[in-house]
Amino acid sequence: MRSPHLISGRRYPLLAALLLAAVPVLLVAAVTYGAVDLPAADVWRVITAHLTTGRPPADVSGIDNEIIWNSRAPRTVLALIAGAGLAVAGAVLQTVVRNPLADPYVLGITSGASLAAVAVITLGSVAGLGVSGAAFAGACATLALVLALGSRRGALTPTRLVLAGVALSYLLQGATSYLQLRAQPDQLAGILFWLLGSVAGARWSDLTAPAVIVVACTGWLLSQARRLNALLLGDETAAALGIPVHRFRLVLLAVAALLTAAVIAVAGGIAFVGLIVPHAVRLLVGPDHRRTLPLIAMTGGLFLVAADLAARTLSPPLELPLGILTATLGTPFFLWLLRRETAVA
């Protein structure tokens, strides 16, 4: 009987090594190509010089150094971080609620962050919060409300969580649309950023907080991989194995919200990554979180870097919103994987 997933255990190290090797290659390609293509050798030298000496190489022009180090490099690294964070958050949410459709959008977390950000753009700051701070607070507040609505007699019910999240997401999207109608013409570009997502304009100073949060949360989730696997077997089985299911589910939801909020606060509302990437990886290697989580993080990061590169190069000088590209690039690939998986099963 053939394996239900496409990559056997013996091939898993090879797949992991290929994805890891693809990270620096795709990062350099994303910095090299754009509205103005630059020599890949210059890109390598500028990045290496900044990382080793903190200064640009003397034989590279100031304009090229500005494009490489201060414009394209930070946005490319942010895309890698954001893609990894959203993909891991989606994987956790799908496990927690045992629903393949769960992701930060379905549970309303992204909609809450977008509403808070758009509210600050159109109505002004509240309690001294800037746009990014408001987005972070909105994501956390939305999760708290979903948890309150999705619990029954003090216990979280996966189905109620999903239904509460979907209903709340529609409500928040409606409020966001209302604020968009009230917006001034000069505010629409900023609103579009929060609705569809973008890593344009990223600065190195924007990367520290999301990078630390994504790495720390992903590392902690890897340490909890066996418990995550137990949740897949059902609450009763997990409880029989000594896992405090209710408390563990709350912690996982908080971690997923933290990952999502950290990314949305700097990259806007990027859809589809948290839904499609975990599924694609599971179709390849199976459901074991010890195997899937590292690949989900790498695949999500690579996917969003590729989407950002396509957004900058497909229709120059127009830069397409990331949300459009993530759906356009991801759906055919996922449908192909799903067809292959059906044929193998």
Rank of each mutant, 00 (worst) to 15 (best):
L156V: 14
T159H: 12
T159E: 14
R160A: 14
L161H: 08
L161K: 06
L161W: 13
V162Q: 04
V162D: 06
L163A: 06
L163P: 02
L163H: 07
A164V: 06
G165P: 05
V166M: 12
A167E: 13
L168Q: 08
L168W: 09
L168D: 09
S169Q: 12
S169F: 09
Y170W: 14
Y170M: 15
Y170R: 09
L172S: 10
L172H: 10
Q173N: 15
G174T: 15
G174S: 15
G174W: 13
A175N: 10
T176F: 12
T176N: 13
Y178C: 12
Y178E: 14
L179N: 09
L179T: 10
Q180P: 05
Q180L: 14
L181E: 14
R182F: 11
Q184M: 14
Q184N: 11
Q184P: 00
Q187N: 04
L188A: 08
L188F: 11
G190K: 04
G190R: 06
G190N: 10
L192D: 12
W194T: 01
W194A: 03
W194G: 01
L195G: 07
L195V: 07
G197D: 01
S198E: 01
S198H: 01
A200E: 11
A200D: 10
A200K: 00
A200H: 07
G201I: 04
G201K: 01
A202M: 02
A202S: 13
R203V: 03
W204R: 11
S205P: 06
D206T: 10
L207N: 09
T208N: 09
T208K: 11
T208L: 15
P210N: 05
A211S: 12
A211W: 06
V212G: 00
V212R: 00
I213C: 08
I213Y: 01
V214I: 02
V214H: 01
A216M: 09
T218H: 01
G219A: 12
G219L: 13
W220F: 15
L221C: 03
L221S: 04
L222A: 12
L222Y: 11
L222Q: 11
S223Y: 10
S223V: 06
A225D: 02
R226W: 14
R226T: 12
R226H: 10
R226M: 06
R226V: 09
R227D: 10
L228K: 00
N229Y: 07
A230D: 08
A230W: 08
L231N: 02
L231P: 01
L231R: 01
L232H: 00
L232E: 11
L233Q: 06
L233C: 07
G234K: 02
G234Q: 04
G234S: 03
G234V: 02
E236C: 00
T237E: 11
T237D: 10
A238S: 07
A238V: 05
A238T: 06
A239R: 13
A240H: 13
A240M: 09
G242K: 02
G242I: 06
G242C: 05
I243M: 11
I243D: 08
I243C: 02
V245S: 07
V245Q: 08
V245I: 07
V245H: 05
H246L: 07
R247K: 05
F248Q: 03
F248V: 01
R249C: 05
R249H: 04
R249D: 08
R249Y: 05
R249E: 07
R249A: 06
L250W: 08
L250C: 08
